[in-house]
Design a protein around this nucleic acid. Structure first.
Length: 410
DNA sequence: CGAGATTCATGTGAAGTATACCTTTAGGCTTAA
DNA sequence: AAGCCTAAAGGTATACTTCACATGAATCTCGTA
């Protein structure tokens, strides 16, 4: 493309009017003024947290609910209002929000506490410090002034699954030591069954109050969509039935409103890019496809080298496996053999099978493969897995991996 | 023929190791009085 | 003498390895009908 073409393209791009009025309304970080269909929950949260305004310690709260049921949104909404009132009254109240799922941020006890201390403006190194030391630093800042602190730990189930419940237990007990300040914990979990496998002591101290966020039904999602679409899009750019279909898609997946909004936003982007003046129903299908692709590619690209090598081995196994019933089933041993040859080609130091086994388990968690442990009777026991990736995406993944792993393409 | 025993390939837990990084400390050098 | 810098010492978290044991159904074994 010549330079003139490019200039032309940019000019045209600027002239072309967009379908969006305010795209950020559809992004997941956006907090609308009015949250629909969550009045009851928001009220309950408000009631539970209100004592903070009088300088009392609010009860610890545990919130359950599937993804996209408005948990985070509701909490953030209440927090905002609460902080505003507290500020007017001059009550020393702080609310911190921390997502435990983020790798390398809060997925171990050390990292969680370190991150908390950082929120209070303390610099904590990534490693090297005793965990106790970090605790006491955190403790000191916390107690350095009279204040009430509310700590929101999102996706706390992930943390406990990876790092155990020690950290949470310590956090809940820290109150008895605090002289000036007090801390309440709000735990948010997507996994409704996860309470069963944590220490009962932790559970009881964490869930002084419990709240369940039920999924939205299709009508509610549609209502939410309509509401947001009004401010997000220009008038009349949405074709009849589009919102309904978005809602239906999302409701199919346990009423995930976040997904519905994302679908709508991406549909809009697609329509815009293809120079349409309206968002049509077909765009939704394309959007769903694109979202899934982007998610997978994102995961593939950002994984550590060893994970990528493992994934590449799976990919190789997948293409060579005899294709029975459409789904090719792959076993650990097979993957590990291929993995070793991959390492050989890429000058990567091969990890042990023990470690690879863990890596496979993590890939399963990431949803990039489907795996389950089965016993093949006389023929041992293994993890039976298959790539959870659309066929059309495999070549692309392969290419990405070959590039990042610097594999000689044969 | 069927109940147990056996077997295989790998899952999985625990403990140990390597690496990268942190703080503290002691020595050496510089500086200012 | 005091202050400052540097390098070594001592300590930690994390990712990974090593070791050892656990799993669980297909297959085998062998007593019994």
């Amino acid at each position: 493309m010549g330079n003139d073409d490019l200039t032309g393209f940019f000019e045209k791009f600027l002239k072309k009017d967009t379908l969006f009025l305010d795209k950020k309304v559809l992004q997941s970080a956006y907090i609308p003024n009015e949250i629909k269909h969550r009045d009851i929950q928001i009220n309950q949260v408000a009631h539970i947290l209100a004592p903070a305004l009088r300088g009392d310690k609010p009860s610890n709260l545990f919130i359950y609910g599937k993804t996209g049921t408005g948990k985070t949104l509701s909490i953030k909404h209440v927090s905002e209002k609460l902080l505003k009132v507290a500020k007017e009254k001059g009550t020393p109240l702080k609310i911190f929000y921390l997502n435990c799922k983020l790798k390398k941020i809060a997925d171990t006890e050390y990292r969680l506490i370190a991150q908390l201390a950082r929120l209070f403006g303390k610099a904590i190194p990534v490693t090297g410090l005793p965990t106790d030391e970090v605790y006491s630093t955190f403790f000191k800042v916390l107690d350095s002034e009279e204040q009430t602190v509310i700590l929101v730990l999102d996706e706390i189930d992930q943390l406990i699954k990876k790092a155990g419940d020690e950290a949470i237990y310590n956090l809940t007990r820290i109150n008895s030591e605090l002289k000036q300040s007090q801390i309440s914990i709000i735990g948010i979990s997507n996994d409704l069954t996860f309470a069963n496998n944590i220490d009962p002591r932790v559970k009881s101290s964490l869930s002084e109050e419990e709240l369940v966020f039920p999924p939205y039904n299709a009508l509610q999602i549609q209502d939410i969509l309509k509401n947001r679409a009004e401010t997000a899009f220009k008038k009349d750019v949405i074709e009849e039935g589009v919102l309904a279909k978005c809602a239906a898609y999302a409701a199919r997946e346990h009423g995930d409103a976040r997904r519905a909004l994302e679908l709508l936003r991406v549909s809009g982007e697609i329509a815009e890019r293809t120079d349409k003046t309206k968002i049509s129903i077909e765009n939704i299908d394309e959007a769903e496809d694109k979202i899934e692709r982007d998610r997978i590619l994102e995961v593939v690209e950002t994984q550590p080298k060893q994970f990528q090598a493992t994934l590449y081995a799976i990919l190789l196994a997948d293409t060579s496996a005899k294709r029975t019933k459409g789904q090719s089933l792959i076993f650990t041993g097979e993957v590990y053999e291929l993995y070793k040859t991959v390492c050989d080609k890429t000058n990567l130091r091969p990890l042990t099978q023990r470690r690879v086994s863990d890596i496979l388990a993590e890939q399963d968690m990431l949803g990039i493969i489907n795996a389950k442990v089965i016993s093949k009777g006389r023929f041992g026991r293994t993890r039976e897995m298959s790539l959870a990736v659309p066929q059309s995406l495999k070549p692309k993944i392969r290419k990405i991996l070959e590039e990042t792993l610097d594999l000689a393409i044969n």
